[in-house]
């Protein structure tokens, strides 16, 4: 009998560790009920942003998408509407981050990127909601609430990430 060994690189281990952290935050958030369905702080995105700054976009994309898949499996939501919403949000915020990462670092910090990602996240979700789940113009009434929540949590997550990055970097010096 042949034993199949998957060769893993140091980077794979790194991605796995960071993803585990993101999954942990995602699950932690899933436990708390939200006053408004769909409005969540999205603290797992702190990990995505942190990875983007420390390891680059490719690793951040891996961590973000692996987190969506693994968390949905753990929560029993794989291929459910919740999963599709989560995935569309994650994909669109990755697109936003891909574009925003080229902004000058001296004027735009993780806070800006976090806000862009949060807006892209709700945009991705609302597109799915409008096209598939609730094909009705009434969904438009929800847009301001979701946008306000995205701005609020985008700023908070961005502040956490930016401080995490500066604190870690000053400690290493």
């Amino acid at each position: 009998m042949e034993i199949i060994l998957i060769k893993t690189t140091a980077e794979d281990h790194h991605i796995a560790k960071l993803t585990a952290l993101a999954i942990g935050l995602h699950l932690l958030e899933a436990v708390f009920p939200s006053p408004l369905p769909g409005v969540k702080p999205g603290i797992a995105n702190i990990v995505t942003l942190y990875v983007l700054y420390e390891y680059g976009f490719a690793t951040a994309a891996w961590v973000s998408l692996l987190r969506v898949f693994a968390s949905s499996l753990l929560l029993g939501q794989f291929l459910s509407p919740t999963f599709v919403l989560s995935l569309s949000g994650a994909l669109l915020s990755l697109v936003a981050l891909f574009l925003a990462q080229h902004l000058p670092k001296k004027t735009f910090s993780a806070i800006s990127l976090s806000i862009f990602a949060a807006f892209a996240h709700i945009a991705g979700q609302l597109i799915i909601v409008r096209l598939w789940l609730i094909p009705h113009t009434g969904v438009m009434y929800l847009i301001p609430i979701f946008a306000l929540a995205a701005l609020f949590f985008g700023v908070i997550n961005g502040l956490i990430t930016a401080n995490l990055l500066t604190n870690l970097n000053s400690r290493l010096k």
Binding site: L103, P104, K106, T107, F108, S109, I111, S112, I115, F116, L151, V155, G158, L159, A162, N163, L165, T166, N167, S170
Partner: peptide, 14 residues
């Protein structure tokens, strides 16, 4: 510590 303050671009975005 709260070391990182928002930059000019961040304020603009906010």
């Amino acid at each position: 510590a709260f070391n990182h303050k928002p930059l000019i671009g961040d304020w603009l975005v906010i």
